[in-house]
């Protein structure tokens, strides 16, 4: 009985310190994520997203993937959330509570999310009930190990990714250019839906 043998060494009832820390961080992360998707104040949703992403970074640290953790802090917390806040402010998001933050199909969404969560948790727990991560020894994701593997075995995807980032940069600039021939072509393509860039549509609800 390998299951009983391993369960004697590790168990759910005698968690190690790393496991306790991971569970606490996981609860904080999950709470912040739930607040992100349920709060009615749009800017608060972005700020709770910072907490959730920071919690995921701490989870990476507990899994000894420190380089990923710092990349997570730099890119997600540092740039993605700032971009999202820029987007919220450029689309004139209301500062206070907005009653129409949730769609009408909220209950259907809740049912779908709970059903998929139940199914996935059941499958995952059933599959990895007797599996343990050995965190002892050298860190798996130190900067040296990540850098070596990245630039020894993953150089080609890495370079392709830089081209992809360049393409995304050019695409974002082209899409968000304020005026020019692209705007005129878009205005002629959409029948009357496109308006002058400076004038917001009259359908915009008063906020």
């Amino acid at each position: 009985m390998t299951l009983a043998a391993t369960a004697a060494g590790h168990g759910f009832l005698s968690p190690s310190g790393v496991e306790i820390a991971f569970v606490l961080v996981g609860i904080a992360t999950l709470g912040a994520a739930v607040l992100t998707v349920t709060t009615r104040q749009l800017v608060h949703a972005a700020l709770w997203l910072v907490v959730a992403l920071g919690g995921v970074a701490v989870a990476y640290l507990l899994l000894t993937a420190e380089f990923i953790a710092w990349v997570q802090v730099l890119i997600y917390v540092g740039s993605v959330v700032v971009l999202l806040l820029f987007g919220l402010m450029l689309t004139k998001a209301p500062i206070g509570r907005s009653p129409d933050a949730d769609s009408g199909n909220r209950w259907a969404a809740l049912v779908v999310a709970l059903a998929s969560a139940a199914a996935l948790v059941w499958v995952v727990v059933d599959a990895f009930r007797a599996t343990w991560i050995n965190l002892d020894g050298a860190a798996q994701g130190s900067t040296e190990a990540s850098g070596r593997s990245l630039f020894q075995y993953w150089v080609l995807p890495f370079e392709a990714l830089s081209v992809l980032l360049l393409a995304a940069l050019v695409g974002a600039i082209v899409l968000s250019r304020k005026s020019g021939e692209g705007e005129a072509a878009a205005a002629s393509l959409t029948n009357g839906a496109a308006r002058a860039p400076a004038a917001p549509a009259p359908r915009e609800e008063q906020r």
Binding site: F12, E19, G26, A113, V125, F128, I133
Partner: peptide, 16 residues
């Protein structure tokens, strides 16, 4: 560490 902890956290984050 038990593998179920990060896996379950990932599942719950995904469903959120």
């Amino acid at each position: 560490m038990h593998l179920a902890y990060p896996a379950v956290l990932a599942v719950l984050l995904f469903c959120t």
